[in-house]
């Protein structure tokens, strides 16, 4: 069972939590290596390097090789955690991730930092709006965008223990703690982090989950009871929980730090369609447009991803539900 914490801002970034956990695991398991492509500094890589100089491999700027080289290292028995920014980990490494890593059934963990709009000031070229859409069709891949540092630590441990391909997003901005440290998670199992009966808000990742919680509070003031779910793993997706929420609350809003095409919103819609439980639904996320340079909080406004937008979407789907009931 997960245990919830309320309203504390994290004292570390998820990239830091990732790095600390990787170092801890590397002490237990000599097969773990950290493979980088010149953005190691952005995930505290030098900390790993200090402890394990021989197991920190910085290839330089060459993301396509980052993926294939990691596949090769896996083929001789190592467990590579290879990292670059999410834009490059998905777009630049797409074919290599598909063939060298996944199709060849290698044991590679792809760590994608600065997902979605969180690299705001680097501008549109650096916004990873479509990484989940690009990796989601890869068979058997596990996709996670941990909501907080507890979830991140669990994700990294699970990835190290499980043979197979993981794609883990690592937020660089500080978010809110959601889970107590001794929470127990399950791969493929979403977590209900606020109960409610009128609508379900399903979120992925730390950047937007907290906006869903704030939206739930806005809605509560209007007498609307909103359930909030952290999807936890985007793939495999928790069909049971989504179907149950659809049946129990009759209306769904998804919220993601990603394009509304091909990510969480699409995945949830697929579940509803496949399981004969289509209910009114809206997707919050990056609309069909490119990113632009600005601060992340400004971008949340520009892209209509704030708590207000989520609350409005919730009211819309609830109204649709009521119309359908008549």
């Amino acid at each position: 069972m997960v245990k919830l914490v309320k309203g504390i801002i994290e004292d570390i970034e998820l990239t830091r939590a990732y790095n600390q956990q990787l170092i801890a695991l590397a002490r237990e398991n000599p097969k773990i290596v950290d493979v980088e492509a010149d953005v190691g500094n952005c995930i505290f890589g030098p900390e790993f390097q200090k402890v394990f100089p021989d197991r920190y491999i910085n290839l330089g700027l060459c993301e396509q090789s980052l993926s294939s080289v990691s596949a090769g290292m896996s083929a001789v028995g190592l467990i590579p955690f290879c990292h670059t920014f999410a834009v490059f980990a998905s777009r630049r490494m797409c074919d290599q991730n598909y063939i060298s890593v996944a199709y060849a059934k290698n044991n590679v963990k792809i760590i994608a930092s600065a997902p979605g709009i969180s690299s705001g000031e680097n501008g549109g070229t650096h916004h990873a709006c479509e990484d989940i859409a690009l990796v989601r069709p890869i068979p058997n891949i596990v996709i996670m965008d941990p909501a907080d540092s507890t979830a991140m630590r669990w994700a990294v441990r699970k990835a190290a223990e499980t043979f197979g391909v993981f794609y883990i997003r690592a937020e660089r901005l500080k978010g809110y703690r959601v889970y107590e440290e001794d929470s127990e998670f399950e791969l493929g199992k979403a977590n209900v982090i606020r109960n409610g009966k009128d609508v379900t808000l399903i979120a992925e990742g730390s950047l937007i989950l907290n906006n869903c919680l704030k939206a739930a509070e806005i809605l509560e003031k209007k007498g609307i009871s909103a359930r909030v779910v952290d999807i936890f793993t985007i793939k495999p997706i928790d069909v049971d929980t989504i179907v149950r929420c659809a049946r129990e609350t009759g209306a769904i809003v998804t919220a993601e730090n990603h394009s509304i095409t091909g990510g969480l919103g699409s995945a949830v819609a697929e579940v509803l369609c496949d399981n004969n439980c289509v209910v009114p639904m809206k997707r919050i996320g990056i609309p069909n447009r490119f990113g632009e340079v600005a601060q992340p909080d400004e971008l949340l406004e520009v892209m209509h991803m704030t708590e207000k937008d989520i609350a409005e979407a919730a009211e819309t789907v609830i109204a649709e539900k009521k119309r359908n009931e008549k």
Binding site: G124, V293, A294, Q295
Partner: peptide
Amino acid sequence: NKLGTRLPSHTD
């Protein structure tokens, strides 16, 4: 790098 600028950090 300000919102709406013609001068983003990377050339466009």
